[in-house]
Design a binder for these strands. Structure first.
Lengths: 166, 166
DNA sequence: ATCAAAGATTTGAATTACTCAAAAGATTGA
DNA sequence: TCAATCTTTTGAGTAATTCAAATCTTTGAT
């Protein structure tokens, strides 16, 4: 049972370490896990790990295609297990909740833009943005205290952003 | 001519200021501009602006739907003019170059996932990842000096990441 | 015109996910 | 058993973005 992941690494000539196995397991344990949460999970399992090692392991696993990294605008990077099944993501603008959706078009869907401009495309990333059922319910039953539609000084949040390119 | 943008703001009850107009113009001046570049552009036009004001203005304009914010994993946030025409993006994994592509499916394409899980979707964001023509050419004519295919200690870059969710 | 209130901008500091670099520790094969 | 290689840790740095409070503008009412 624990051999599964080890084999996966061995097969690619990656050295097998407790940290890597635990990272792999942490990613498998939760649908869209952050690096921080991976670190926590790994610590529960093997006692200790540096955040740097977590990043290294995750980076390696992503490079090898064993896991996928997603970075919805406005939240830290997330990692997932489901790879090579081209599924997409629904993201809530309010609370950030993220869920999977299967691809509409078939096997390797959307994988081809109309005009590829000479790019060699290897992945199509699709994110559907909107409001999740919970946040939707909350804004519909506004608990009698919201501003009386007056002006509309839009105070929507949406604004967390992303890192440097150097 | 300069009235266009002012009207746009006025119509929404947004106070018109030199900063906001200049920000709006800066975004219109370049396909996918960063906040930093906007600041530079605005400074050329009106002399000075604080980076904070740039962020504020951009945030406001995004909230009002006058511009769109995109955040390809691995680079800082970018802002664009083309809004409400549901186009997509081709992004180079190597150099980060970003270009527009029109949507394959029609008017409001891909805008509907198979199963929306109860989300109220308002936008479908599609990013095609791959290698741009230039980077492709470079890796194909590898200048006689690349490692002899031995091991494959994948050293690909891709790794700049994103901010907190707090 | 004048003034107060609301709104915008600036200033300065803080946050934080992530990366770099070098040192210490483990593995592996000879 | 030992050296070479690969991993992990440690510690410090980076850069985009946000927070908060102070100052400056604009606007509407008088």
């Amino acid at each position: 049972m624990a051999t599964d992941q080890a084999d996966l690494l061995r097969r690619r000539g990656i050295q097998i370490t407790a940290q890597r196995l635990a990272v792999l397991r942490a990613v498998a344990s939760q649908p869209h896990i952050t690096a921080d949460a991976v670190a926590e999970g790994v610590r529960v399992e093997i006692g200790a790990i540096s955040l740097q090692s977590v990043y290294d392991a995750l980076g390696l696993l992503v490079a090898e295609g064993l896991i996928r990294r997603i970075q919805p605008a406005g939240s830290a990077a997330r990692f997932e297990d489901r790879v090579a099944d081209n599924h997409h993501h629904l993201i809530c603008r309010i609370c950030g909740r993220l869920v999977d959706v299967d691809c509409a078009v078939g096997a390797a869907p959307c994988l081809t833009p109309n005009d590829d401009r000479g790019y060699q495309v290897d992945e199509a990333e699709v994110a559907y943005w909107g409001r999740c059922p919970d946040c939707l319910a909350q804004s519909e039953a506004p608990s009698r205290s919201d501003p009386p539609t007056r002006r509309r000084r839009s105070q929507r949040r949406i604004n967390r952003a992303s890192p440097p390119s150097r």
